[in-house]
């Protein structure tokens, strides 16, 4: 890997100042970025670690909102006293050692098309809080590895409204432990939201037909005869477009049956 300058500021203002220089990049837990740099697919001149910023750490549950600091690790979300759909998702990312380093902010900023957190954020209608503004999940995800984040902008927190019931189902690609397909189902008073990761060439998306059906009747039967269009699905050696499209329906059904 090419060398770079490593800095670890202790507050958001100092992190933004450090990121303002050219070829600087923010570093969360590095569980994606460090392997990427080893392959020389990324070669920042400066890395700004966000893990020294204490105000970006931790999970707070108050009323019907879970607020997660952007630099909070997956392990700390998994262990938090939050709703089971969220803690279950966090406890299934990667492996235990990866969960002790990887962060929710890093995952959402990278927006890997097979990452787990984008499905949770989109299905719950989360708010992505940055140093300068608040972005609704529906506006935040803009396609594979693409988000609404600007060049010098840090995810300081994520606010998630607590659903009445929720569940995340992941069909794991056994070597990478990423989602071959992952489905997050979240039921709220005003309707059901379903977000799919791992499947689409366009990154995480909402399955609107399933949402409409489940909002009327929250049961497996409501979606068992639905299907998603396979034409935009990812096709690779792990699974064809049609295989992924079928998994979307199967996993949505399992998520509905398991929702609590």
């Amino acid at each position: 890997m090419y060398n770079f300058e490593f800095v670890k500021p202790s507050n958001v203002a100092d992190a933004l100042a450090a990121l303002a220089s050219e070829e600087a990049q923010a570093l969360g837990g590095g569980q994606t970025l460090i392997p990427t740099m080893k392959q020389r697919l990324a070669s920042p001149e400066k890395l700004v670690s966000l893990l020294g910023i204490s105000e970006m750490q931790g999970v707070d549950v108050s009323g019907n909102i879970v607020t997660i600091g952007g630099a909070t690790t997956h392990a700390n979300v998994a262990a938090a006293d939050a709703f089971s759909g969220l803690t279950g998702l966090a406890s299934g990312i990667g492996d235990p050692a990866v969960r002790n380093r990887g962060t929710i902010g890093g995952s959402l900023a990278n927006n890997d098309p097979a990452a787990c957190y984008p499905a949770a954020a989109l299905a719950t209608g989360a708010t992505i809080v940055t140093n300068s503004r608040e972005i609704l999940a529906d506006d935040y995800f803009q396609g594979m590895f693409t988000t609404a984040l600007k060049e010098v902008e840090i995810i300081t927190a994520v606010r998630i409204p607590v659903p009445l019931a929720s569940n995340y189902q992941k069909f794991e690609q056994p070597a990478s432990r990423f989602a071959l397909v992952g489905v997050f189902v979240a039921k709220y008073v005003d309707g059901v939201r379903v977000a799919i990761t791992g499947a689409s060439e366009n990154g995480v998306f909402r399955w609107s037909e399933a949402e409409a059906a489940l909002s009327v009747n929250f049961s497996y039967d409501a979606i068992s005869s639905l299907s998603v269009d396979a034409s935009d699905m990812i096709s690779d050696l792990h699974g064809t477009k049609e295989y992924r499209a079928n998994l979307v329906r199967v996993l949505t059904g399992r998520a509905v049956l398991s929702a609590s």
Binding site: F6, V98, N100, R101
Partner: peptide, 12 residues
């Protein structure tokens, strides 16, 4: 806590 030391910088 357990960490993969090939995926963490010493400076961190």
């Amino acid at each position: 806590v357990a960490v993969k030391s090939c995926t963490m910088f010493a400076a961190e």
